[in-house]
Each structure stands twice: as structure tokens, then as C-alpha cells.
Design a protein around this nucleic acid. Structure first.
Lengths: 150, 150
DNA sequence: GTTGAAAAGTATTCGCA
DNA sequence: TGCGAATACTTTTCAAC
């Protein structure tokens, strides 16, 4: 994991379809040397996977909601985590420090889908309390730091 | 944007390096038909870009923090948004409903980097108050819903 | 680790249904 | 829109450094 690997990752983050020759030209390596580095970055788990970034609007997931959840004292925390890991509406689920137990990032087609989701959590006995906020607009949204090009 | 497009997007989301032939076999189309659909999905902005998913641990971004920020009444909101859009530590910045003005998702190398970041916001006159929580563990983290394979 | 060239595999184009 | 064949690239492999 040296400076060159970082550059390669940044370039792939911006456009994972750039050819090895292109990337090589940018970082000063031959295509096969870049290939070997990318292979290792995948093998060591630095690169988790190649994927695609999608317009939420187009996918009918226009409503972005953050929910802070306080677990009930008698809640089965493992069951809660498993439920969150499976739930289609849950994009992110983090165990957090502070007043709340978990922070959830959720996406829905319409605002009306939010209440049933929270009702479900309550009904399942997971949740003692929650506070939700709706994203009115998004200034920025990316998945990793990309400081210092090349 | 029909069912087939959705399937293609889900498949690319799981592995953007799958060949057009593979994807075609999965959705019942020829490679060139898949290619044409992917091209259109990009042209219409449904697919924003091909990218790479990275291990935060490996990138020295182990510390995940969420900060809820209340803007000062006299704050220049546009300047704040521009600052957030540029700041390397800011992964996400959403204008939210409720008690707070903005929700930030931040990543740092070490916990000690958090305080300077908040100090910076305060010093710049953007922030009236904030509440931060640190992610102790992450149950799930993905960027779009992927319900219903094929 | 890196290179350069050969081999294998893919994307892309285009005429046609 | 989708297909299949031809073309142009790209990735991948490998012997050598």
C-alpha cells in the first residue's frame, strides 16, 4: 500500500472502467504492472469490489431518512442487527456512541413508507425510542476519501 | 427503465466487472443488447459511474463519525455548503429536517482528528452547536437498494 | 516488482431482422 | 430493440530481468 496504490485506487474510484494502459500512463507503470497491483489490492481486501454508482431518483428511492434508534432494554440486540442486515430499506446501520444505540440510513420511494418501517421496528420489540430526520437536500455523498490525486 | 434494466443494475452493483455475455445470460439478452442498455443507462444518468468499493481500514480511515450541526443564525449557508463539498474529511453532507441543520458523515484516521475538525467549523463561524457520535461498529453499509435479484 | 510481447477474452460497431 | 458476426481493444499470462 504505497503512494502508487493510493493513486490507482483514486483513479478507479473516479472511473473503474479506465483501461490499465490509461492508469499506467497516469501513474508511470506498464499495464501489466498496474494489473498486478490491482490484483493484489483485491486479494488483500483493500478493493472490496467493482461496482456502479446509481441515481437514487431513477431507482425510486428519492426519500432519504436518517433514524436514530434507542434499543429497548429487553431487546435481542443480535436479532436487531440481523434484521437490519437483511432489511431492504436499510442502507446503513451503525452502532454508535452517545444517547442513541444505532444510527440508520434508509431510503424509501415515498415519505409514506417511513412510518410503516418505524412501526415494524417497534412492533418487533427492538425499539424503545427513535428520532428520525429527513434529508431535504444532499450537498455531498461519496463512499471514500479521495484526497490528493495522483 | 424496465425490469431488465433493474436486473442489470443489480448485477453490476454486485460486480461491475461481469462481462456483457455473463449479464446477458442472466437476463436473457445478447451481449450487444446488454451493452446498448448499459450505454443508455449511463447516458440517461441512471448509472452515474463505474467505481470501486474500498476497505476503509486499509485506507487509514478507520474512524467513522456522524456530526449533527446547527448553523449559526448569522452563518453564510452557501459558504458552509461549499466548504463541506470541498472538505476532504466530509463523506456526506445532508440538509435535514428537525432540530439540527445538517448531518455530516465523516471519516478520520484517528479519533484525535475529530476535535480539530469541529474546531475548524466553529472558528469559521458556521456552527452554533453540534452533536457528534462515533460509530463503534458497522452492521451494514451499502449505497443502494438491491432488492429482488434478476 | 517490473517489463514487453503473445494469447485469450471483451467490448463495440454495424447491417439486418 | 434485439441479434450475430467482424473489428478493435483490453486484460491476462509468462519468460526474462
Amino acid at each position: 500500500m504505497d503512494r502508487t496504490d493510493r493513486s490507482i485506487i483514486n483513479l478507479l474510484g473516479a472511473d473503474a472502467r479506465r483501461s490499465l494502459a490509461d492508469i499506467g500512463a497516469a501513474v508511470g507503470l506498464s499495464p501489466s504492472a498496474v494489473n498486478e497491483r490491482v490484483r493484489k489490492l483485491q486479494a488483500t481486501g483493500v478493493i472490496r469490489r467493482f461496482t456502479v454508482e446509481v441515481s437514487h431518483r431513477a431507482l425510486d428511492e428519492s426519500v432519504l431518512v436518517f433514524a436514530q434508534v434507542l434499543l429497548a432494554p429487553e431487546a435481542d440486540e443480535d436479532a436487531f442487527r440481523r434484521a437490519m442486515a437483511r432489511h431492504p430499506d436499510v442502507l446503513e446501520c451503525h452502532h454508535v456512541s452517545g444517547r442513541w444505540s444505532y444510527l440508520l440510513k434508509l431510503r424509501f420511494a415515498v415519505l409514506g413508507d417511513v412510518e410503516p418501517f418505524l412501526g415494524e421496528l417497534k412492533r418487533d420489540g427492538h425499539m424503545a425510542a427513535s428520532e428520525t430526520s429527513i434529508a431535504l437536500s444532499t450537498v455531498r455523498e461519496r463512499s471514500f476519501r479521495d484526497d490528493g490525486g495522483l
